[in-house]
Amino acid sequence: MTDATPLIQVEGLHKSFGDHEVLTGVDFTADGGSVTALLGPSGSGKTTILRSLNVLETPDAGVVRISDATIDFATPPDRRAVKALRSKSGMVFQSHHLFPHKTVLGNLVEGPVQVQKRPVDEATAEARVLLEQVGLAGREDSYPSQLSGGQQQRVGIARALALKPEVLLLDEPTSALDPELVGEVLAVIRDLAAESWTLVIVTHEVRFARDVADQVLFLDNGVVAERGGTEVLTDPQEDRTQRFLARMLDAG
């Protein structure tokens, strides 16, 4: 499970929105094929970390490396470097952001065909395999609006995978779903973990994180307050981690 050098490396990440310092020096690494779970109270900066990994937000300082693409945000990044780093990861949004005017298949082949310039036939064949994998074979020609929330999110995952990224970033993929739809999405993510995809997932599903995560990062006030294996979730050392988990498990 662990390679010699980690696939993801984040050092000294800082980000402010105006006067508000959201990230105040975040460091972590993740090995290829590992699952990293990001937990922490709302507003602690989890989403901002994820969005820094694909430069949807531009950090004020810090270094982000995924595979062989590195950006040091000490200076404003140039476009080519951003493009290179972005191509290493795929992203699954909390509220899927599927393209409503394209069919399920259209959503999946858009990136491979338009961005990666791969042949339509090839991209379509691969998209069908992915849809089968997320349990949506036969829904190729549906529009997103004709699917349930859980199905939409599974299409969101498949769309991200269609680009064959090295890392999949998931930002609370089940938070916007009705409770009865959460399971089908988590099941798909579990399969991905089993297939050794490298995942970085922001989640409030503590039990799920306990099952699939190799590394747990507990975030508070813009820093990683506690980190380790799943023992962070079963036997937290920090006060604030304990309090957070107690609240989560009560609620869940």
């Binding site: 694909n54 949807l56 493009k83 972005r86 191509s87 990861s89 795929g90 992203m91 949004f93 509220s95 952001h97 599927l98 393209f99 409503p100 005017h101 858009e110 990136g111 338009q114 961005v115 990666q116 769309r159 991200a160 680009l163």
Partner: peptide, 25 residues
Amino acid sequence: RGQYEAATVIGMDYGQSMRRIILPQ
């Protein structure tokens, strides 16, 4: 705005996002 972000993370540049994702909607 999520539509623009979704287009961006699948690697589209400004022109592509506009033409294929934003303007049709």
